[in-house]
């Protein structure tokens, strides 16, 4: 299934957002997630399904002004 992760097209096998984080080697407690520009809570990732063409954002803390 082809989806976009942080702006890059990726072929992935995960059916849910929680599985995607594992597949891509993210630490689940250190990132915040959004699917198609809508926030997905950490507790909702396991039941958040992915489909072809979805856009996932996986963000973490950075320097800011």
């Amino acid at each position: 299934m082809l989806i976009h992760v942080n702006g890059k097209a990726l072929e992935v096998s995960s059916a849910t957002l929680a599985a995607l984080l594992q597949e891509l080697d993210f630490e689940e407690n250190s990132v915040a997630t959004a699917l198609n520009q809508t926030f997905v809570r950490k507790t909702e990732r396991a039941e958040t399904g992915l489909k072809e063409g979805d856009a996932v954002e996986i963000l973490s803390p950075r320097q800011g002004g």
Binding site: D25, F26, S60, Q63
Partner: peptide, 14 residues
């Protein structure tokens, strides 16, 4: 602080 795109292996945010 801000939030920016993370890459799985880098873990710069942590």
């Amino acid at each position: 602080v801000s939030l920016r795109r993370e890459s799985g292996a880098a873990r710069a945010g942590e």
